[in-house]
Design a protein around this nucleic acid. Sequence first.
DNA 1: GTTCATGCTATCGAAAATGTAGCAAAGGCG
DNA 2: CGCCTTTGCTACATTTTCGATAGCATGAAC
Lengths: 109, 109
Amino acid sequence: MTDRPVRGSRTGRPIMALLDLLGRRWTLRILWELRDGPLTSRALRAACDEASPTVLQARLDDLREAELVEHSAGEGYGLTELGREFRTAFMPLYAFADRWADGKPTTPS
Amino acid sequence: MTDRPVRGSRTGRPIMALLDLLGRRWTLRILWELRDGPLTSRALRAACDEASPTVLQARLDDLREAELVEHSAGEGYGLTELGREFRTAFMPLYAFADRWADGKPTTPS
DNA sequence: GTTCATGCTATCGAAAATGTAGCAAAGGCG
DNA sequence: CGCCTTTGCTACATTTTCGATAGCATGAAC
């Protein structure tokens, strides 16, 4: 019953912080759109389906504080080295997405 | 400038659907808490820091529709085979979380 | 100086999440 | 059978967040 109470869900754990960060709208999308290189704020907004600058800016702040994204005057927003590590770690999920869509024809239109 | 318009966005690619699903609050957390085996709705709620049942139920519906989570009368909520594939694909990010926290001592308390 | 792109903020209505309470169904048990 | 507990889920009001549009300051180009 309460034999398995909370497991590793204490709030201090890195995975919890990461889950929290990624579980906000546009966070994953931003990281994904920056995978090929830096984008200006406007270009990023275009890539993110014209998401409102309010949230985008908030998420960029989050991601900058998380040191996954950085801003350089010349190029705009891009992944930090940590961000590029994230990208690498994310790739299996990218591959999974295809298997997922494949084995889940519950996606009519 | 518009030389790099949207890249791989739109087109309803699987990755976009996955990014959308995971970018909702508690989605990733739920999948994470179910990693070791099924939990009843109440136990899951406890594991998820007593999140409100409203959202949890909504996310469980999302995840069931996505065929990542299933419900069995006897055991509660658990990962489907697809869900277990997800878990595998997610592991690199779990490993990354530690490196991230390590190289980012910007997490005092 | 004018034009333009960039990075960012302001506002406000809409949507989503939170917190608490509660219910119907299923099972155990006297 | 009544009584109690657990489970899965819903209702509601409040708070938080998001979305859409407009707009501004800065800096570079022309």
